[in-house]
Design a protein around this nucleic acid. Sequence first.
DNA 1: TCAAAAGTGTTATCCTTACACCCATGT
DNA 2: ACATGGGTGTAAGGATAACACTTTTGA
Lengths: 325, 325
Amino acid sequence: MREGKEPIEIGLNAAIVAMVDNDPCILRVPGQDELFADALPMGPFDPRKHRTMEIGLRGWVAEQTALSLGHVEQLYTFGDRGRQRPRDDHGPHVVSVGYLALTRVQPEQMPAIRLAGADFRSWYAFLPWEDWRAGRPAILDEVILPAIRQWLSRTDETDYASRGLKPSARVRIAFGLGSQWDEEHVLDRYELMYSAGLLAESVRDGRYDAIQAHGPTGRGMDHDHRRILATAMSRLRAKLKYRPVVFELLPDEFTLTELQQTVESIFGRSVHKQNFRRLVEKAELVEPTGATSTETGGRPAALFRFRREVLAERPAPGLRVGRRG
Amino acid sequence: MREGKEPIEIGLNAAIVAMVDNDPCILRVPGQDELFADALPMGPFDPRKHRTMEIGLRGWVAEQTALSLGHVEQLYTFGDRGRQRPRDDHGPHVVSVGYLALTRVQPEQMPAIRLAGADFRSWYAFLPWEDWRAGRPAILDEVILPAIRQWLSRTDETDYASRGLKPSARVRIAFGLGSQWDEEHVLDRYELMYSAGLLAESVRDGRYDAIQAHGPTGRGMDHDHRRILATAMSRLRAKLKYRPVVFELLPDEFTLTELQQTVESIFGRSVHKQNFRRLVEKAELVEPTGATSTETGGRPAALFRFRREVLAERPAPGLRVGRRG
DNA sequence: TCAAAAGTGTTATCCTTACACCCATGT
DNA sequence: ACATGGGTGTAAGGATAACACTTTTGA
C-alpha cells in the first residue's frame, strides 16, 4: 500500500482428510526442511490464474493428486514470520492460508498417490494424545502432563495472559484437569504444548534448546503445518455436530456401525450405541437402502444412505453428539 | 513460489464493534470508491514491522483511533479479484484479511473519532433486515422476499448448486421460510441477496445493471466490507453462546437488564426475561457488586460485574440462549 | 451351539419454554 | 396511588444419559 514493499506470496496449505481403515487420515508429503519427514501439501496462489483462493486450492490439488475434494473450508491465515521461517530470513515473505478439505480414497488410488511421494497417514500419528478411542492415552500421563506441570512451575503466571487466562487455567481447561476432556480443544492443547517446549517445532523455532519431554510427542511437521492440522481437527470435530459432513468421508452406502465408527474416529472417543442410533434417527439424516451387508461378521447390518433432503429441511443438520452419547 | 510474480499486498480490515445507546455499532470511515459513503477501517500488513497480522492490526488501530481493542478474531481471507476490484484491474493485487474486534467507547472519545473522519454507526444501518427486536422487519416482506422470489423464478435451479443446495433451499433456510429465522445465518442471507442483485454491491461488481429491488436494502460499502461485516455479525452472534465476550462491550458494572439488552441488540431479537436471568445465574457468569442503580426509572436494579473466574472454571462459558429464551 | 455383531425398550434426570404474579422506587 | 421497570416460583414437555436385553447371522 506504500513505500519499499517486501514481496509477499500466498501459500495455500491443505489438511486433506479421508477415512482409511477406520482412521481419519491426512494426505502428507515429504518435508522440505530436512528437519521433518512430513509436511502438508501446499501450492501457491496466483491471482492471475485463479479467481478465488478456494478455486486455486482445488486447482493444484486436482493437478497433483487426482483426488476430488468435497467440502473445502478455509481455516486461518498466518503471516507469522517468527514461526514459519526462523532460520531462513531471506526470500519472499510467505503468508499461508490453511484449509480443511474432505475426500474419499479408493484403495486403487493409493499407488498413484504414493508414486507422487505422498500418502495418507492417520492424523493421530501427529497428535497421538487426541485419540481416546481405546481409553485415556498413556502418553498424557506419562509424557505430556508431567512436562506441562514442569513448565507451569517455572512459568511466571502474571506475565502470560492469553485471552485473559493464566497458563494454569488454560492447561486446566484444555487438558480437562478437574473437568472433562473436550475433544474440540485440539488447537489449545497444541499451542500449550508448543509454548511449553514439548514439540519438535518448539525447538526448531528456537524457543527451546531441546524438547522438554521424556518421550515422543508425535511426528513434527514443516512450518506451521501441524498447527494447521490441529486447527483442522478442531474444526472438523465441531462441524460434525451441525453439518452432515461425515457423509463426505463415507461410501454412498454404509451401516450404522460404520457411521458410528467414523464419527468416533474423528472425535477420538467412543460414543454410546443406542443413544447414537436414536440421535441419527431423530436427525433424519439417513434412510435405509433396503439392502443388508454381511461383511462385518455376525448378524447382517442394514445399509443406509445419506438423506440429502435434510440439507433443505433443517438449518443445522448434524450429529449433535453429547458428552457421552 | 515461481515465475513472474504479480505483486500481492495484504490488507487488514476490521469490523470494530462497540455498544452505543443500546445498538451494536461498527467504526466506519468514508468510502474511497466515490461510490459508497462507507467503508471499514483498514490498514496494510507489513511483515517487517509486525510479527503477526493481529499485532499489525492492533498497531494501526491504536495509531489511528486511540481505541483499545479487547477480543480480536480473524474472520476470513479473500483473494477475490472479481469482487474486490472489478473496474480497476491495475495496481497490486490486494488480499484482504477480515477481523472482528470488540471495544468500548466513552462518549468523550467520540469527538476525536469524528475528527479523524470516522464514527460509530449501528450495524443495522447496513443490514436492516437483521434487526428483529421490534418484531419482523417490514423490509423483509416489502422489499427483500418479493425480489428474492423473483430471482428464484428466473433462476435455473439445476445449474447452481452451492454446498449441495439449490437456491430455493438456501433461501428457505436462510430466510426461515417454513421454519424459523436463525439469527446466525447473516452471511448466507447477505450472499443470497448479493447473488440476487438486491445490493448496491451486486451492481458495482457488474453482476447486474440495476438493483433488483423496489426499496432500499441498507447502506452499501466499499470492496467486500459489507460481506466482512456480515461475517462479523454471524461470528459474534454465535460466539456469544459459548464465550463471555458480551462483557467486553459492557461497562464494568451493569444491571441484568442492560446485559439482556446488549445480548438482544447483538442477536437482533428479544429474549425471555426470566429464562435469560436463570441462564445467567446458572452459568455463574456474573456476581452482584452489592450496589444498585436508580438510573433506569422504576425500582432500582442490582448491579453486577463479570465473574472472570468462569474463564478458568468452564470450558465454554457463554450465554446459551435458546430459540426463545 | 456359540461367538460376534445388530438392533431394541425403558427410565431418571436435567434443561427449555412458558405461564403469571409480586416488589421497590420516583412522581 | 400509580406508573415503571426489577425481580421471582412453578410446572409441562422434551432432550440426554444410562441402564440391560433380544435377534440374526457364520463358523
